[in-house]
Amino acid sequence: MLLSSVVIILREVLEGAILLSVLLALSSQRDISLRWSLPALLLGSIGATGYAANFETIAAWFDYVGQDIANATLHLLIVLSLTAFAILHQVYERSHNNAIIACMILAVAFTVVREGSEIILYLSGYMNNSEVFPSVMLGGIIGSGIGASIGTLLYYALSCFLINSARKIAYLLLSLFAAGMSLHVVTMLTQADWMASGHSLWDTSGWIDESSLTGQLLYAVTGYESTPNANQVIAYIAGILLLLLLPRLLKKGFEVYEAKS
């Protein structure tokens, strides 16, 4: 029981921890105080509690696919917040810090709602079982601890690099994260039959199995999927383009516009 709860909680915590540490590293480079993370985590926790408390009602919507629709919406909101963040962060080198902070708060809060609600649903199942509850809770604490440590390590690793390369690595991680989130939107909508399904395009489970440690880590960081269908691949590429290419194009556009006027 202990080991499986460590793994389950770690999987949920890892995504949020990685997102938070990348955004914190980008904040400190820009001399933005890291305090924004507190309201983000608080808002996310309140949201997660509310979602978990009303889960049964939400899950029954649209003939029991409400959960997929709600989660797809959350994933989409994360992608949109990160896209807005990337645009503001790259186009405005110095100004608009408050808007940037707002985008980061939203992205982290939505992630915590998504992952936190699942943790609550998992732990609440053991509330009345006094035999295993202590070991499940202990597993949860260890799992969160490992997740938080990985996040902290990543933050300091990014802070150690030279400013330019750290920014590039942070952006690469952020765009892979957003791409994974867009892929989840498609997965959830397909699972609910709100989106057409299709055969998988390839199978890389022979190289990296999704259930292996590497597979799970890759899943948390990049949304790794060993057997994706066409829609998932398109969503993944779209996610990368939204974060890596769109802000650059807009920045170039602004520069040309300003040079003309």
Binding site: A59, Y64, Q67, E118, T187, Q191, D209, S211, S226
Partner: peptide, 20 residues
Amino acid sequence: YDLNREKVIMGNSQTVIFVG
């Protein structure tokens, strides 16, 4: 992992998952 599916089902409840 084989089906790319993941969904919570609360106690004494039901759910619908499309596969294929």
